[in-house]
């Protein structure tokens, strides 16, 4: 006989939930970034590690400090500040100074993320906004490129990125081969150089259902199609397309930046459109912009459109056909008239 008195919770449904919570998702993103981090340390040496560490530490500190100061609950456990920290360092060249990371993460975490309410509320990607802020503040340092250690003997210490050759008048140097671009043996921001490492991370994220394939595929696909069609003198169209895909921040942007949850649309068709917009703007900026690189600004601009895209491209509701929608629109028009 059960004689003991029990009290029961009247909690709400459902009574079971998935094990994947926010910190697990952010941990997955960090895991997906590990290959790119390893490549950056291999290519650029210990300073890359220093930048990453300082960036992560300061991002977590700003998150903790702001929440503490504003007497809000602590959120560093969700690991989103760590992700932002890693990404801020990854979009800087190796010539950046450690204290720039502290300032950049302050802008990313406090101004862009926390002032708007914290995780899920920021309307642009914090890491990219941080980069834009650093570009505006220290334009010279942020565009000084150092070649990876393995290439140092060939071309001195500083060199332009493949992208500046691609859209410039000088011929592409031989050491910027497809192979070197693919594995990351080129100059550029520390996290963006290796397409291979980033793709591995991207496949992991899609397999773990952390991100949807829609944004990266439509983003990269749009860049591929547009560059294949329009081409550039001095390159065959296919060659030009492959260079465009492998160089600059395209992979990093399409896989890790454009897919940022809070600044990207949620509806399925909206995601495709958003990726298309990012791709088209990237190509436009690369062709006609004053910077050789357009990925970060393309994403920031599309971030601002995400809300409108979500409003305009909603998912099809179950049981509602195209005819139903048309009929409803017609009825609304007649009611107005």
């Amino acid at each position: 006989m059960i004689t003991k008195e029990y009290t029961f919770d009247a909690s709400y449904q459902p009574q079971v939930r998935t094990n994947t919570d926010t910190s697990r998702i952010m941990l997955d993103v960090i895991i997906a970034l590990v290959p790119a981090m390893i490549v950056s340390v291999l290519m650029f040496g210990a300073k890359a590690l220093l930048l990453l560490l300082v960036s992560v530490a300061s991002a977590v500190f700003w998150e903790w400090g702001y929440r503490k100061l504003m007497k809000k609950h602590d959120t560093i456990g969700d690991l989103s500040a760590c992700v932002t920290g890693v990404l801020v360092a990854m979009v800087c060249p190796i010539s950046a100074q450690w204290w720039m990371m502290v300032v950049g993460t302050f802008f990313a975490i406090v101004v862009v993320k926390q002032l708007y309410g914290g995780i899920g509320k920021n309307f642009v990607n914090p890491a990219l906004a941080g980069r834009a802020f650093m570009m505006a503040s220290w334009a010279a340092i942020m565009t000084t490129w150092t070649v990876p250690n393995s290439l140092a003997g060939i071309d001195g210490v500083s060199a332009a990125t493949p992208l500046s050759y691609l859209y410039g008048t000088e011929a592409m140097p031989e050491y910027f081969s497809f192979c070197n671009l693919f594995i990351g043996n080129v100059s550029g921001c520390i996290g963006e150089v290796s397409a291979l490492a980033l793709l591995v991370g991207g496949i992991y994220l899609i397999a773990r259902k952390v991100i949807s394939w829609r944004v990266p595929v439509s983003f990269i696909g749009t860049v591929a199609v547009l560059t294949l069609i329009f081409g550039h003198e001095g390159y065959s169209n296919v060659e030009f397309m492959v260079y465009n895909l492998l160089s600059g921040g395209l992979m990093l942007g399409a896989i890790f930046m454009a897919t940022d949850y809070s600044s990207c649309p949620t509806s399925l068709n909206g995601k495709l459109l958003y990726g298309f917009g990012c791709g088209a703007l990237t190509v436009l900026i690369r062709y006609f912009g004053s910077f050789p690189e357009g990925v970060s600004y393309a994403i920031l601009i599309m971030n601002l459109c995400a809300w409108a895209i979500d409003k305009g491209f909603r998912n099809r509701q179950f049981g509602v056909t195209k005819e139903d929608i048309k009929a409803a629109k017609k009825a609304a028009k007649e009611a107005k008239a």
């Binding site: 079971v16 926010t22 998702i25 609950h73 899920g120 809070s262 949620t266 998912n315 179950f318």
Partner: peptide, 25 residues
């Protein structure tokens, strides 16, 4: 079995929307 947390936070990931069988948001 209880997985409720003290501070539920929407991270705007859209995972709710992809699993809704009714196509809602």
């Amino acid at each position: 079995e209880d997985k409720t947390v003290e501070n539920p936070t929407c991270i705007h990931c859209g995972k709710c929307l992809t699993v809704c069988p009714m196509g809602l948001e």
